[in-house]
Nucleic acid binder design. Structure first.
Lengths: 240, 240
DNA sequence: GCTCCAATCTGGTATATACCAGATTATGAG
DNA sequence: CTCATAATCTGGTATATACCAGATTGGAGC
């Protein structure tokens, strides 16, 4: 059975895991309250919270504000090397996407942006900040920094749809190559607040820097995902 | 200054962050003990630990066993789409790599492996389990599942070096295409123990499934990284 | 100098308790 | 019924305390 020298909170982690599977709790379903769980498993709320945090780190459950703990939905598969928009690949997997534009503005390239892109500091750039949902759970927020030379008047367009699409159809610009960076981090500040999660919640950062055929900067994309929301899936090599 | 309604542990997070920068604490350097910090910042050890956990989630500091808290070294850049071995890309970045083989054995393909590769269940496969260090900090453990058809006698070779290299030079096999999966998870069980970290420590999972030109299964690679150890960096598109 | 062992220091685990703020639910007025 | 409000439920924050086990340190004995 369980190792006797195994800490209580890890035993609880495993028992809760089994319990969730036994009860066949499905996606988005609510767990009993921490107080109720601590009674049911004869321990304190502090210890139960340690166990719940373990399951949260696994990605099995997630917390919602002060509403309770819920079973995490299946991870979204995501291929950052492909050029299809959020709406499309979410739909293809049978989920319901939604995008909210939180703000869009014309601003001046800050230092970090000019270093990443080669644009001179202070160059005007469009900055769009959006929140994206799958099945009404907010999974990520996204900053787009766009070279306005290639798409004048972008801000008056609707930005709840695919920017790729718009680039291609309206401005006839196609991204040619991309530099992608991915690493885990903690969500905090604006990104945590916008997603309605606690400061320090585990997240995944994805940055995509796109240039066109002439090597001109098109767009820089900074995505902050919930750590349990996605599974990156890429195919490389083969024919070429 | 700080928002008055800001929780103490978040204020501490920021003050500790500043303090680490001010003191110019460098990579691998040790922080004062939790008891000392809680006195210095006039709070309890529990609250200090919350703040430290925040910085841990950020990747700024890490804990080592019962030895203390240390400043996290710079992230290793890693391109899982390239074919160069661990030793080489670590060296290229000016770090010291080291690999330990924890075990290697001939086993039979379990269900999950046959589902992932198409091999019949029970087919013999080599299974190698290794731990990899950078500057003497263990950053990941790695399971290699290898099709023995293409490399008979592999287990008697030294497996502290590059498997790619060996495939190519000794067995004349070159991986042609790969399916890569990446997602955050919690390190636990064997992987956490092997890395000497606590159960539930944040990690990053990277899986690489490699086939050769004929579409035959060569190797499945499952890597469990510390979440703060790497930055994935990929270039896609351009000439082809 | 060395080895061995005890003391000490470290983070890890666990309990008990309290209050807060946001979210939800129940209630009662209209 | 609808709407506003009050009560309640929820997780979030914070303090105080205790003991454990592994890691490190210091000292005794050689």
């Amino acid at each position: 059975m369980s190792r006797t020298d195994y800490p209580v909170y890890l035993q609880l982690r495993d028992r809760l895991w089994d319990w969730i599977e036994d009860e066949k709790l499905s996606s988005q379903q609510k767990l009993p309250s921490e107080r109720e769980l601590s009674e049911r498993f004869s321990t304190t709320r502090v210890t139960i919270r340690q166990a719940l945090s373990q399951l949260e780190a696994e990605g099995l459950i997630f917390r919602s504000n002060r509403r309770g703990w819920f079973v995490t939905p299946e991870r979204l598969r995501y291929d950052p090397s492909r050029d299809i928009g959020f709406t499309r690949y979410v739909t293809e997997q049978g989920f319901r996407p939604r995008t909210e534009t939180l703000f869009k503005q014309l601003t001046e390239a800050p230092k970090w942006l000019s270093e990443a892109t080669g644009l001179p500091e202070g160059t005007p750039v469009y900055h769009i900040f959006r929140r994206r949902y799958v099945n009404e759970r907010g999974l990520l927020v996204e900053h787009n920094y766009i070279n306005p030379q290639h798409c004048p008047g972008l801000l008056s367009e609707s930005t709840d749809l695919s920017i790729w699409q718009m680039f291609k159809e309206k401005y006839n610009r196609v991204p040619d190559h991309r530099d992608i960076e991915i690493y885990p981090l903690a969500l905090k500040g604006l990104e945590a607040d916008s997603l309605g999660v606690n400061q320090g919640t585990a997240g995944l950062y994805i940055q995509r820097l796109s240039h066109d055929q002439e090597g001109e900067f098109l767009e820089l994309d900074r995505e902050y995902w919930l750590h349990d929301a996605l599974k990156i899936s890429v195919h490389v090599g083969g024919r070429h």
